[in-house]
Simulated assay, not measured.
Amino acid sequence: MRDTLWMGRGIPLSSANEDLQPVLAAKRRILALNKKDLANPNIMNRWLNHFESCKQDCISINAHSSSSVNQLLGLAELKLKEAISKEPTLLIMVVGVPNVGKSALINSIHRIATSRFPVPDKNKRAMVGPLPGVTQDIAGYKIASQPSIYVLDTPGVLVPSIPDMETGLKLALTGAVKDSVVGEERIAKYLLSLLNIRKTPLHWERLVHRRGEVHEETCSHNENDSRDSLRRRRCLNNSDALYVQDLVTEVQRTLCRTCLDYTGNTEEESELESLIDMQLTALRKVFRIPHKPFDETHGPTSKKLLTLFRSGKLGPFILDDLPDEQ
């Protein structure tokens, strides 16, 4: 008997595959929203309530967290309770779009299984990576005996034809589509458009004021400190991001400041694009990327911005809007 675990990441609707729904409808299914540590917890809870209202078993997980994966296994055991007593062998397929964390989840499940039961191939691991397309074939991992339960890792599945441009950009932004297919700059501009439309940079306004306070506090020691001490306490500037958190703070501060300074109407598409170009230009300085003559592209800046977003450094986000809010 085969059952299904469908995985999504930050895009609960955009990652759905309507072509598979007729097949999945006949299976016992759990929807696992992975990387909950990168999602806004309040919005995540609303998504869980939404799927519950649709009579769909859904759980938010972090595939790298043993406690989180144990909760998922508990839900799976509950759904399979009747089958476990009747079937000699059970297959659980882990299905989802590329780069959603399926193989990472498989490895966590296998690690937990080896601590509970005498499982063969204890050192067997699913290959994982930051780019989509790492898993090329279906691979099975035995996680229990009596009955035998196998969990199947599968390559990422995308719909043959993405229904609209925004869905495609969301898939690209989460890494389900290779950056080279869409273009890093285009993806970064889409990210900035989302942030600006949602007014996210304005939530970072305290960082702008905080920078002023730090600047004044640091410079107030100028008269009393020695030259060596002054060198250690030099006033901060936009290019002094020595550590990741400093860099993140400077990126957030820069995006906020450009929003506050911009006088155009961002509800107009052309003016929103103008703001985004200003932000990418400002971020080039933050990332300390040298300007090349006659080069108006933002490739390196876009790549660094996407890296910060995908690693959750810019804060928790869920890209899809709830159906009743669209």
Rank of each mutant, 00 (worst) to 15 (best):
M1E: 05
M1L: 07
D3H: 14
W6F: 15
R9I: 01
R9C: 07
G10I: 02
G10T: 03
I11Y: 01
P12I: 10
S14P: 03
S15C: 12
S15N: 14
N17T: 05
E18H: 09
A26E: 11
L31I: 14
L33N: 10
L33G: 07
K35I: 03
K36C: 15
D37F: 13
N42A: 10
N45Y: 04
N49L: 09
H50M: 03
F51A: 06
F51T: 04
F51I: 08
S53L: 08
C54Q: 14
D57P: 09
S60M: 10
N62P: 04
A63Q: 04
H64V: 09
S66D: 13
S68Y: 12
V69M: 08
V69Q: 05
N70S: 15
G74P: 01
L75V: 10
L75H: 03
L75A: 07
K79Q: 15
L80H: 01
K81Q: 13
S85A: 12
E87D: 05
E87T: 11
L90Y: 00
L91F: 12
G96D: 02
V97S: 02
G101A: 01
K102E: 04
N107S: 06
S108I: 01
H110A: 10
S115T: 12
R116G: 00
R116M: 13
K124E: 06
M127E: 13
P130H: 05
Q136K: 15
D137G: 00
G140W: 04
Q146R: 13
Y150P: 01
L152Y: 08
T154V: 04
P155L: 02
L158I: 12
P160A: 03
P163L: 10
M165A: 13
L169R: 08
L171C: 11
A172S: 15
A172D: 07
A172I: 13
V177L: 15
D179G: 10
S180V: 07
V181N: 06
I187T: 09
I187H: 05
K189S: 09
L192R: 02
L192N: 01
T200L: 10
L202Q: 14
L202N: 11
L207E: 15
V208Q: 13
V208G: 10
R210V: 06
E213C: 13
E217W: 11
T218P: 00
H221K: 14
N222F: 15
R227A: 14
R227M: 11
D240C: 14
D246W: 11
E250Q: 14
E250L: 12
T254S: 11
L255A: 04
C256V: 06
T258I: 02
N265K: 00
E268G: 00
E271P: 00
L272K: 06
E273C: 01
M278E: 04
T281R: 04
A282C: 03
L283N: 02
L283F: 07
R284W: 07
R284E: 12
F287S: 04
R288F: 07
P290W: 12
H298S: 12
H298E: 09
H298N: 14
K303N: 08
K304S: 14
K304V: 05
L305K: 08
L306D: 12
T307L: 11
T307M: 10
L308C: 10
L308E: 12
F309V: 09
R310N: 07
S311L: 06
G312T: 06
G312V: 06
K313F: 07
G315I: 00
P316H: 00
D320I: 09
